[in-house]
């Protein structure tokens, strides 16, 4: 198991390095003169040159990269070129917003997706199964932003249960926080629920037909205990989908953050791209990759725990 974990960690670090290097050079290639976005159109050439010198743009590209990379290695992503505030601090402010929404969405997806998938899988071709399949097709076909807008119109504008836009930090009001992330989380989760449910349903049907299940039933185990055995054997595929969904939801949050005006990582990415604030973009990229690596790592551990055969890969 330790060898398995070390292998996964090394793979994660290699991925992190590759993405960091790629992002740095791609960002610098895409934005020819960041000072124009940072200082605006009224800045004089002298003011732009002064800013370029201040943020080190007048040095060779490799020197700039090495400086950034040395800092990144010890977790220091430097300062924003726009306001000279710490990148770490700005990401630390925005990250909880995105994580709140994505984690809540993942939780909803896991609970509802598992329940729907399990029930539909245990009773294939029942009315419930058909309803789930129909809803799955419809939700899968509908664009996420449209679902978001429907939720806003219904629950924020008509019923006024939730705010249409904005974010309330939990420290300010726990209830306000929950209300502010509920609609964005459901917007993200609805599409993901059907995928997890569909995946689990198919696995449950397959596992249900296996000999060991029949044996368990013949030994007189209760329906609940048999279902638990089925779920454990059917869950790896759904768990993998859920992990992939979590990573996908992180990027999908950019759209949801725009629709609900949430000050999360997506909004910061958007603003930094427009301003040419490359240190922020690099910091966000590295943090996102770290999350991908961690999620995949945890997934591998979980799959290894559920199914010991996986550990020998």
């Amino acid at each position: 198991m330790i060898g398995f974990i070390v292998k996964r960690l090394v793979a994660g670090i290699v991925l992190l390095l590759a993405v960091s290097i790629g992002t740095f050079f791609l960002a610098r290639a895409a934005i020819s003169d960041p000072t124009a976005g940072l200082l605006g159109t009224t800045a004089t050439p002298a003011q732009r040159a002064a800013l370029a010198a201040k943020i080190g743009l007048d040095r060779p590209l490799m020197v700039q990269f090495w400086d950034w990379f040395r800092g990144a290695l010890v977790g220091d992503f430097g300062v924003s070129w726009r306001n000279f505030q710490s990148v770490n601090k700005q990401i630390a402010i925005k990250l909880p917003v995105t994580l709140s929404v994505v984690t809540f969405a993942t939780l909803i997806t896991a609970v509802v997706g598992t329940a729907f998938g399990l029930i539909a899988g245990l009773r294939p071709n029942s009315l419930f199964d058909r309803i789930i399949k129909t809803v799955s097709v419809v939700l899968f076909a509908l664009p996420g932003f449209w679902i978001s807008l429907v939720l806003v119109v219904w629950f924020a504008i008509q019923l006024k249960w939730f705010p249409a836009v904005g974010y309330v930090p939990p420290a300010q009001s726990l209830g306000g926080w929950l209300r502010s992330i509920t609609l964005p989380a459901f917007s993200l989760a609805l599409g993901a629920i059907v995928v997890v449910a569909e995946q689990l349903r198919n696995e449950v049907i397959a596992v249900n037909k296996q000999d060991f299940v029949r044996t368990l039933r013949s030994r007189g185990l209760s329906r609940g205990r048999v279902t638990l055995h089925i779920l454990r054997n059917a869950s790896p595929a759904a768990l993998t989908v859920l992990a992939v969904m979590f990573v996908g939801l992180l990027s999908g949050a950019i759209v949801v953050e725009a629709i609900f005006s949430l000050p999360g990582i997506g909004q910061l990415t958007n603003a930094s791209s427009q301003n040419g604030d490359i240190p922020i973009l690099l910091g966000i990229t590295v943090v996102s990759v770290i999350f991908v690596v961690i999620v995949n790592f945890l997934l591998d551990i979980a799959l290894g725990w559920i199914n010991p055969k996986v550990r020998v890969r």
Binding site: L149, V152, A156, I157, A164, V165, I259, F260, S261
Partner: peptide, 18 residues
Amino acid sequence: IFPIIDQTARHNAMLSGQ
């Protein structure tokens, strides 16, 4: 003051009374 780039979100915020 709510900075909201998406015009639909701003309009929804107005409709909801925010």
